[in-house]
């Protein structure tokens, strides 16, 4: 047999074998800025505190809450079943298996949007899908879920629905005793209200 063929075969095996030894390429540089901007301006990357509350109450198995504040803040107060991944250790290999789980919706949150947004952009650059930011963060959570303020009398039915949901959620999360609504004609209105699926989406 010709020696050249032996040499070529060896070269080809070495080239292909070299591929096996190369580290995986990390394609950070390949997300074009246009695409990233497009993703960032999509409102769908936000979830509201009500949506999160609803998922927690319904024990949605696809929900994965990620608290990106530091460990002290996490210990002081956080949401049930949340994982603490401080922003500065988001890239640490200890936490890498929390992200990019198939069919899981990872929701980042911090005290406000800022840290969570930063974490979201990093995760996006790592090419993870199913990542969200809880709009308004824990401040909004306190304002809307833990201590909901009743809407003004003139507000729309949706606003009252939302308030009802928030009150219910508040009871769920804080263990407050139920304070029955005062028996004025407002309660009759509540009874007649139609249930709307959209009701659990509100602003902060």
């Amino acid at each position: 047999m010709n020696k050249n063929y032996l040499f070529l075969s060896l070269l080809m095996i070495l080239l292909a074998g070299g591929l096996l030894l190369l580290p995986d390429r990390t394609n950070y540089s390949q997300i074009p800025p246009e695409d990233l901007l497009w993703d960032i301006i999509q409102p769908t990357r936000y979830v509201t505190t009500e949506q999160v509350a609803k998922m927690i109450i319904e024990q949605d198995p696809t929900l994965e809450l990620i608290d990106v504040r530091d460990a002290d803040a996490f210990k002081a107060f956080s949401l049930p079943n949340a994982v603490n991944i401080p922003l500065d250790s988001l890239l640490s290999p200890n936490y890498s298996d929390y992200l990019g789980i198939e069919d899981m919706n990872a929701v980042f949150y911090a005290n406000d949007d800022m840290l969570a947004d930063q974490a979201w952009v990093i995760a996006k650059r790592l090419n993870y899908s199913g990542i969200y930011v809880m709009k308004g963060g824990l401040n909004c959570w306190i304002k809307t879920i833990i201590q909901p303020a009743p809407p003004p009398e003139t507000a729309s039915l949706d606003a009252f629905d939302l308030y009802d949901f928030r009150k219910g959620a508040s009871i769920y999360f804080t263990g407050k005793t139920i304070t029955a609504p005062k028996s004025d004609n407002k309660s009759k209105v509540i009874v007649r209200r139609k249930k709307k699926t959209k009701a659990t989406a509100g602003g902060c």
């Binding site: 080809m12 095996i13 080239l15 292909a16 074998g17 591929l19 096996l20 190369l22």
Partner: peptide, 20 residues
Amino acid sequence: DRVVAFAFVVIAIAAFYVTW
């Protein structure tokens, strides 16, 4: 994909020899 490519290279070279 790298394992697939490597396997193809090995199989191909073996096939070249056998068919020769």
